[in-house]
Write a protein that binds this DNA or RNA. Structure first.
Lengths: 194, 194
DNA sequence: GGCGTCGCTTGACAATTATCAACCAAGCTC
DNA sequence: GAGCTTGGTTGATAATTGTCAAGCGACGCC
């Protein structure tokens, strides 16, 4: 379900309380996913604050519950309530840092390295289980990683030489050390998916 | 001159009042410029707010004047002064939006398209003059655009077929319509350089 | 069951981009 | 002026990534 479309004025701050949302952007017929929003989290906070048009579009990925707060109210309460202001600015700074990491990931690493690092992170998130399952549709995953679905498919197979066994959406990390040798994860780039 | 290095704790908010600063990141021997800071502007604001390590390094590009404000003070005054808080959050939201645009630029466009759009923007910034000069070293420009210096050099020549004449750092846009046909600029992606 | 649709994979191929080495021109230093 | 250094360009080549088309298997629907 389409929630917002890039270019529209930002009338409401959105808060996701249940479900999942894909943030994406388009240009000249191309489309790229920029982030996945999971509860509880706001989105398009920056547009709300600056009273500027949305830069991204948003669709729900599943049945979701979303709270809409009029942007004017957000800006008004920001001036009245110091704790609210602090919460807003902390959230925004966190989003900013996540984006810087994404930018570094994209500009400094190859597609294979990005994928390898994602798998390592997924494993951490899964509590270290050897077998994990990809959290979303591969097409979307590819877009988030900045590659095509075909390239993801091939790259996933190529990681077999680096301690990864793939079967559909199920992935087994058979040799974490080998994968880390390829991925070279860094806390200054790799982010919790949140 | 090296101002900050990624990974270090963020003790000071930096404010550039004169000169120019390059923000870049490194990983495994690779290096990529993420932004150029021009006066008057803050940098590493998000790290200051979250009291988290720097994600980027910063070097001066020329003789510069930089004001350092202890991060604790920034966080304290944020709670005491509503106008200050509003200014901070507006600045941060602006940086965030600039970064989203950069991300879209990188993920949705080819190197040639990114370069073409940059030239168009430079011309606007130069008040529409037919002849403009590239604002920084080509090597850094290439890095900002997410490509190698060699690729920039070749792509610049390739733009001759699209209304661009190049002579070293001087660029003449001879056919803006043709260049726009290739570049397809969009206010939802292309940003003032600030 | 038969038949679409959909997501994913694979193959063949092309475009894009990077790498490496050589070279050039300008600006310095001695 | 000779020799360095530096930033930029060019050529040859390779690696990476994308495109297009076909095929496969699972699923839902009639």
């Amino acid at each position: 379900m389409e929630l917002i479309t890039e270019g529209e004025p930002s009338d409401f701050l959105h808060v996701l309380t249940a479900g999942a949302v894909d943030l994406f952007a388009t240009w000249e017929g191309r489309r790229s996913s920029l982030a996945t929003v999971l509860p509880v989290s706001t989105f398009i906070l920056a547009a709300t604050i600056r009273d500027a048009p949305y830069l991204m579009s948003a669709v729900t990925l599943e049945k979701s519950r979303i709270v809409l707060i009029p942007s004017q109210d957000v800006r008004r309460v920001f001036g009245e309530d110091g704790d609210f202001a602090r919460a807003i600015v902390a959230e925004l700074a966190g989003c900013y840092r996540a984006l810087v990491k994404a930018q570094k990931n994209l500009k400094l690493r190859s597609a294979q390295e990005r994928l390898a690092n994602l798998l390592l992170r997924l494993q951490v998130e899964a509590g270290g289980a050897a077998e994990i399952s990809l959290p979303f549709e591969k097409r979307r995953l590819a877009s988030l990683l900045g590659m095509t679905a075909e390239n993801l498919s091939r790259t996933l197979r190529a990681l077999r030489r680096h301690g990864v066994a793939v079967d559909g959406a199920r992935v087994r990390i058979t040799d974490r050390a080998a994968l880390e040798r390829l991925a070279r994860p860094s806390p200054l780039i790799d982010d919790p998916l949140t």
